Simulated scan of single mutants.
Amino acid sequence: MHAATRPALAVIAHGSRDPRHAATVDALCARVRALRPGLRVEAGYLDFDAPSVPRLLERLDAEGVRDVVALPLLLGRAFHAKSDIPAVLGETTARLPRLDVRQAGVLGPHPLLLQALERRLREAGSAPDRRHSTGVVLASAGSSDPEAIAVIAQTAREWRRTAGWCAVRPAFASASLPRTADAVRGLRADGVERVAVAPYVIAPGRLPDRIRAGALEAGADVLAPVLGASEELAAVLALRYDEAAADRRPVALSA
């Protein structure tokens, strides 16, 4: 698809009072622009940061954009992907009849996200030759959605199967159990020699800080940084955009 005819990409982020969140989103958008030269990539936020999603779509419409892929900056399909984002897109596009907006799929699960987790653990000092004696806590933000929790558990199982860690266990910063500290202690109680905590979150903020506090409290040996603007994460954004842009079937957006 020629750059001039491709839909614009609106990355839909949650937003945060922590300025590191928006800075990470900006860096990810810049990486996607580098991967897809000529593609218009903008970010909009559900809360806290500007522009809001409605303001972003209104601006694109006013500038003559007619086709937009709205891509949730989410690792899993929970409340925001199933309810919040469709609702705000549906309400806004009802007021902008010239604008065609389709919602792309969430980022995870995807093998590239496991590669990004591996990269962050290496950067934090996890030794590849000690995988057989290292257990990993896959620490996500958490959700009350059973589907989202099941996907995190499956991601942990797949990571252990493909990477060779002696254990990979999920933990959650909110809404679900166990918490990060309890997962670290559980691995220790099971005789795991070394424990690494891998935050399965995109940007810094309140919940990642809670993951960090739990890892430190329980004495984890390695604490990786968040996924951030990694090249793997940017590649998944570009792939999800490509999938949505290629699917020209009508998409119903509703609350």
Rank of each mutant, 00 (worst) to 15 (best):
V184C: 12
R33T: 14
A62K: 09
P54R: 11
L207K: 04
G105N: 05
H110N: 13
L227Q: 08
Q115L: 10
A124T: 08
V151I: 14
V195T: 08
R179H: 12
W165I: 07
L113P: 04
L114W: 05
A244I: 00
P204Y: 01
L239W: 04
S126T: 10
A150N: 08
L56I: 12
H14C: 07
A34H: 07
P72S: 05
L89F: 09
F79P: 00
R131K: 15
H14P: 05
L28I: 15
P225C: 03
R77Q: 10
L216I: 11
E123T: 04
R17L: 10
V236D: 08
G191H: 12
A198W: 12
E231N: 11
P19C: 08
P128E: 06
A4P: 00
E193F: 01
R66V: 11
L233N: 03
R161I: 00
C166G: 06
A3L: 02
A10S: 06
A183T: 11
G164N: 10
A62H: 08
L253T: 03
L187Y: 08
A116F: 00
R130L: 15
H2N: 15
A181R: 14
A4K: 11
V197K: 06
R210L: 14
P146Q: 04
Q154W: 07
R59P: 00
A229I: 03
E58N: 12
R210I: 13
R130A: 13
M1W: 10
A13H: 02
P170S: 08
D100V: 09
S230G: 15
D26H: 12
A141G: 13
D145P: 02
V192L: 09
V151A: 12
L9D: 02
V222W: 00
E63V: 03
A252G: 01
A238W: 06
S144D: 11
S176N: 14
A127N: 13
L89V: 10
D100H: 13
R179S: 11
L60N: 07
V68T: 06
L207M: 11
G186C: 06
V222S: 01
V53L: 05
G15Y: 05
L28F: 05
V69T: 06
A173V: 12
I211P: 03
V32I: 14
T5P: 00
A220K: 04
A50T: 15
R157Q: 15
E147D: 15
T162I: 13
R119H: 14
R102V: 14
F172V: 04
P19R: 12
T180N: 09
R188V: 07
R6L: 14
P19F: 04
A141Y: 01
G228S: 08
R179P: 00
V11A: 03
P7Q: 08
L207I: 15
S83P: 00
R122W: 01
P208C: 09
H80S: 09
